[in-house]
Design a protein around this nucleic acid. Structure first.
Lengths: 71, 71
DNA sequence: AAAGCTTGTTGCAGGGAATGCAACAGAGGT
DNA sequence: ACCTCTGTTGCATTCCCTGCAACAAGCTTT
């Protein structure tokens, strides 16, 4: 089934968060053709790699890098 | 057996190369408690992650970052 | 109030990939 | 010759990533 290496998966997810800041996990999953669980389960792994993700009170996801404290 | 995630494994290997530049794969394997094959098989994965490793003609391994061309 | 839809989470099973072991050939030293 | 150490590789085992399905909670629309 040609599973992609984990690193590329995480990179895709983070890039989608950058491209669509504020989207919820389910929306990103549809954009990426992934299962919802895959996206939510990847968030901790993203942070471990230094790609911090901020989550607002409605589940919207935003990139949290570049020392941007207005998120 | 508490196998560590692949990313941490690769990081450990590269840190050992930094700590003991010039050591061969078998030496690093002993220092890390790993099999020799694990270290040599990890070298391509290290490069894919941007942790370039230089290998001299006797098998000694060196970090190859920081634009250091005297390696 | 219901019914419907979407969300995030979680348990489970399948499968791909990482790992360890052992054997091998080659290089070097005694 | 022998012995040791090295890197490589084939194979079997095991890990854990992934998708699926079910669930509860929240929200909107009847």
């Amino acid at each position: 089934m040609a599973r992609k290496p984990n690193a590329l998966r995480l990179e895709e997810i983070y890039h989608k968060i950058e491209a669509y800041p504020g989207k919820r996990a389910a929306s990103l999953a549809r954009l990426l053709g992934l299962n919802r669980s895959e996206v939510t389960r990847s968030l901790p792994a993203l942070e471990e790699r230094g790609w911090l993700v901020y989550e607002d009170d409605r589940g919207g996801l935003y990139p949290f890098d570049k020392a941007n404290s207005q998120n």
